[in-house]
Amino acid sequence: MIELIDISKVFRNKNVETKAISNINLSVADGEFVCIMGPSGCGKTSLLNIIGLIEAPSSGKYFLDGALVSDIAERDRTELRKNNFSFIFQSFNLIDDLTVRENIELPLVYQKIPPSERSARVDLALERFNLKHRANYFPSELSGGQQQIVAVARAVIAKPRVILADEPTGNLDSTHGEDIIQQLIKLNEAGTTIIMVTHSMMQAQRSHRIIHLFDGHVVTESYTRAAIKI
């Protein structure tokens, strides 16, 4: 499904050139749960952004379902992004001025789903994530854990093929963190591909495959027991 060949990303400032990731080759199959690990600044988030078509690579080739997508225009990237990927961030990234219901609904607005269907799907999501009583709250009125649940609900509602999670439990206590991991495992079991960046080896062990990055390179790639179970 996802195939990266010799992907690099370079950030250029006035005088400084920083290589965030360098010649990465990686394949992710449909329905996989992959974790990316590594120290701060090793290029995890950049890799996730490239996979999620948030930013374009500086060089290399990226094939999505066999089609080359590394060089396509911003407009096409947006189209592909909204039809294939959803995102969960460490800092939740909810819109402060929108209620829980409106935040969850947003991806459907951009997919031009008719209002009646939108409403039905949001109701289902609120029920599924136990957020119905908080539907009209604003993000600032929720705890961090609750905000991240809303972010997961928002990620799921568009029925993406791939969820990209960037340290989704980084700002949460262990109980809330576990809730999120459970939700992601459930989604993966239902067929959604998940690629997650994490610092927690415990969480990583629950995925199928762990990729270790260091200084922008893939240093090791290992399958977990969870993968063997499959």
């Binding site: 999620g52 407009r75 947006t78 909204k82 995102f87 990234n93 819109i95 947003l106 951009y110 568009a158």
Partner: peptide, 16 residues
């Protein structure tokens, strides 16, 4: 700015 980023990630186009 942050909101714009979120909306873009969620699929908002230039027109929106």
């Amino acid at each position: 700015t942050k909101e714009i980023g979120i909306r873009k990630v969620l699929g908002a186009g230039t027109r929106e």
